[in-house]
Design a binder for these strands. Sequence first.
DNA 1: TCTGGGGTCCTAGGACCC
DNA 2: TCTGGGGTCCTAGGACCC
Length: 367
Amino acid sequence: MRYIAYVDMDAYYVSCEIRDRPELAEAPVIVGPAPTGPESRGVVLSASYAARKFGVRSALPVGLAAQRCPQAVWIPPDFEKYGRIAGEIRGLLAPTADRMVPMSIDEAALEIAAPGPSDVEAWARATQELIRSKLRLPCSIGASPFAVVAKIASDRAKPGGIRVVPPEATRGFLAPLPVSAIPGIGPKSAQRLEESGIRTIADLGAASPDTLRRVLGQGAPAFRALARGTPGPELGELPEDHGPRQRSLDRTLGSDTRAAGEVRDHLSEMAEELAGLLAEEGFRYQAVTVRLRWSDFTQAQHGRQLPAAHEGPAALTSEALRLAGELLARERAEHDRAVRRISLAVGALVPRRGHQRSLDGPAQPRG
DNA sequence: TCTGGGGTCCTAGGACCC
DNA sequence: TCTGGGGTCCTAGGACCC
Ligand SMILES: [Mg+2]
């Protein structure tokens, strides 16, 4: 039988740092911009399990994290290191499986052929031991013939565990879990489902297709089939890789601004940087979008398809400045909020002639 | 406490075509 | 001539994931 094993590194950034500073193994460690430092506008990127006992989680504003856990050891992020180690992890994993698909910087899905669940279990123990002995890093592993079930199982196995769900056990495994355990059902969907009396995945499987369609939209039938233990290909199989859809850069300003010149200066730099990134990756772009987040945290975007694909910073810079100018003009006339964050994205990416996409798959940074 | 940066996909309305 | 319907593309906004 073909199983999908989902390997998810535990507290990945923190584990990478503790590896180099073993005296911190049991300490409340937080990777993120220190709240007393220059980048006070930030969030926790990764928290050790000791820090989580104080209510510190990824994406928590650093000010609140410091308040909840004053004794925390703060370590600034080193993305170059995390990326390099991620490559080493993949190098160890790939030869153990028929196929390995990187899902993020700290997750990978592997296809393995195994006669039964006990063989998968043995593979998972050996794999955990391999990563622990070679790289001194902990991970959790979930496995199922269905991709999304393997991922959910890896979440339930954390930290450091293994959870194998044979196909016939799928429905029973999922039934008691909250709907929010399903990737793709976030806080908003969970709230709306709760308002319809749907709290667990068992509730989801018993709900009427019409109700689910209203709350979850087009994906409803796939979620319902999953809840009944028989996911279709949308959730059961690993997604195909068709190359990146877009590339983007974001900058949150140290303090909000109404100065158009400041916004333009940032955008010009960002356009240069983004054009350089695309050149390295071998893509041309045929769409440009500028997105501005205002001081009240709402955002507005303005974008445009270009008549032809471009490379280099010139077209990107002029488009970006024009789009931002139009957004800012409208904002001045309507609400006149200050700018908090500037984002620049290019889409409709076209491979440059003669340029083959790297076999490593797209860059997949995360934090 | 005050909310990062980098991605993917879905929805909805209007334009346009058949 | 009028009406309806479906498909696709574009744009803006939003949910969601790590
Ligand atoms: Mg992880």
